[in-house]
């Protein structure tokens, strides 16, 4: 084999690892330092605090609620988007008239920045001026305006719905990539042998889709867990913190109340939680792959 920079993997990976490492590790060290320090209102360090900041985070009455909702939020959107994207990808993988257009439409939510999507929905969900209410009224679904964002029982499901809608394009793209890697003859052979479409899906498609499903679960969990704009732009976690998830809680603690020590501690805890969850999932997925 000829020697070249191309055959030395260390040289190949060095720039990428340096760039990512610099941007991730340096700030992480900073945050760790803040988390164990006494910090004034403006993030200036004023001595060692031990675990005080962590205790303050956990004893905050809003913390447990935010944890629980983060769990619901993440699971609902990750599962929901997979449940929506799988059939969409299966349909888009078939050959039909206007498939190109259908694919473009399915990708559209992606073309709008998340912040803007959230702003549009905030406007559309407005109780009196919002166009969702006027549309539903015109269709005869409702008689009186629903104040969507007034209480968490309507606001939170709406936010989850928006979350699924914006997560769908990415998930569908991943799945489409997976589906196109499955040779057509495999499906055809199975069909010739008399397998029903459901059987083909369960016995052939799904197992082959496993790695792509895993990518979707891991990536979406990370993104959704950390997703900020949808909730912030529609309700800011209100009313009465009833739509707060950890990220919006973090933002309030850090930047509105100026408790940067608590915020740094919370950041680390969130990071740790995500790390543990993802590693467990990756382990499980790998074990399944091997068996």
């Amino acid at each position: 084999m000829k020697r070249s920079a191309l055959t030395n993997p260390y040289i190949l990976i060095l720039p990428g690892v340096l760039l990512a490492g610099f941007i991730v590790i340096w700030p992480l060290v900073q945050i760790t330092e803040i988390a164990v320090s006494e910090v004034n209102r403006f993030g200036q360090l004023r001595g060692f605090a031990g675990l005080e900041n962590f205790v303050a985070v956990v004893t905050d009455p809003a913390f447990l609620g935010a944890c629980w909702r983060t769990f619901i939020w993440t699971v609902a959107i990750v599962v929901g988007s997979i449940a929506v994207s799988m059939p969409v990808a299966l349909i888009l993988n078939e050959d039909f008239h206007g498939r190109g257009i259908a694919r473009i439409i399915m990708m559209l939510p992606w073309a709008v920045s998340l912040t803007m999507t959230a702003i549009i929905w905030r406007w559309a969900l407005n109780g009196e001026s919002g166009m969702l209410n006027s549309a539903l009224k015109a269709l005869g679904v409702i008689d009186t305006n629903i104040q969507w964002l007034a209480q968490s029982s309507t606001a939170f499901p709406m936010q989850i719905m928006i979350g699924i809608l914006v997560t769908m394009p990415f998930t569908t793209t991943i799945f489409l990539g997976g589906l196109s890697s499955i040779p057509d003859d495999l499906n055809e052979a199975a069909q010739l042998e008399g397998a029903s479409p459901w059987q083909v899906f369960r016995e052939i498609t799904l197992p082959l889709m496993r790695p792509f499903l895993n990518i979707a679960v891991v990536m979406n969990t990370i993104y959704v867990f950390n997703s900020f704009p949808i909730i912030w732009a529609t309700t800011q976690g209100g009313p009465a913190n009833s739509t707060d998830i950890l990220v919006t809680h973090l933002y309030k603690v850090g930047f509105r109340f100026g408790k940067l020590g608590d915020a740094a501690a919370l950041s680390l805890m969130m990071f740790a939680a995500l790390l543990v969850l993802t590693l467990i999932y990756v382990r499980l997925a790998m074990r399944e792959d091997k068996s």
Partner: peptide, 27 residues
């Protein structure tokens, strides 16, 4: 070290900008 690099890449994706923003700003 290949495995370590892969794990590092996966882990570094878990840090949301919001979580890191104070540190990033200082950087």
């Amino acid at each position: 070290g290949r495995g370590a690099v892969q794990q590092f890449l996966l882990v570094s994706q878990m840090l949301s900008p919001i979580v890191l923003v104070i540190g990033l700003f200082r950087l």
